[in-house]
Amino acid sequence: QSTIKWRMQTYAGPALAEHVVKPAIDMFNQIAGDKMQIELFFADQLVPTGELFQAMQRGTIDAVQSDDDSMASPTEVTVFGGYFPFASRYSLDVPVLFNQYGLNEIWDAEYSAVGVKHISAGAWDPCHFATKDPINSLEDLKGKRVFTFPTAGRFLAQFGVVPVTLPWEDIEVAVQTGELDGIAWSGITEDYTVGWADVTNYFLTNNISGAWAGSFFANMDRWNELPDDLKTLFRVCCDQSHYYRQWWYWGGEASLRVNGPKMELTTIPDAEWAQVEEAAVKFWDEIAAESETKAKVVDIIKKYNADMQKAGRPYRYG
């Protein structure tokens, strides 16, 4: 029997992929051996991120690791994948929302309808600003050209941020060529890992999301063709990847804030930042009004956050 071969493209460039996906795929290949091998490609390597979803539908690419938002998947849940503002506070919130609050079922239905298998969602890092000039107040956000997620950009526009979307691999250069004033795409671990800490000077400790949701996807036919043991192995490796990120980001964020030499920390006072949090709740309602499915997801997010609030410490402080 011949080896099953898959091509998988990730949203991440080589430096980041070294942490967020490569270890899991290496493990998969090692265990699967002659049965199956996955070839991993980095951001924009085979197809540009904008064409990623359709390439997976056609089968030019068998599997994808990305958030729903940046690859613009044609589903009702796209706005929630990536950073839906203030939906989560900690990285553990994401798997709980998916596994215990019913997001898995909604995602599965949405993607099955467009011929794609949603395999597994995981929590990635929080969303902070990394900028060339310091941000100490909401006023400082005005007019900043910032690389961010489409939905986060839509939300941040009301504070005068000018969201810019460019190929992921071009961001470092774009900050230097003046196309961007900053980045609101990740936590500080990624800023250091991918080199953005070298081209920006300041890190804002306030975040607009505690952890984003990103997923592994596959072409539906390719997935269905897999024998059950390989399906299970793939899921296990996805979980391994999610687990790696849980501690890599959690520890990395704290350590680099305290010990990182390249970026100076700034903070917008809580009272002022509360305006952003209030705006997020309004934004949730705007999104909920767009469709029934979106309303369903927003309700789940609201219920989850209310539960966490009631549960008290350590789930929520204050």
């Binding site: 991120t49 904008g50 064409e51 359709q54 539908q57 056609r58 938002d69 940046s70 690859m71 613009a72 044609p74 467009v114 961010t148 489409p150 950009g153 839509r154 526009a157 000018v162 969201p163 810019v164 979307t165």
Partner: peptide
């Protein structure tokens, strides 16, 4: 042609940017 056909499906493909133009 395939990519253009896709851009008409699912309510119209939009660029994943804040401006969100139809593609």
């Amino acid at each position: 042609i395939d990519s253009t056909a896709y851009s008409f499906k699912y309510g119209g493909e939009r660029s994943p940017t804040a401006w969100r133009p139809y593609l």
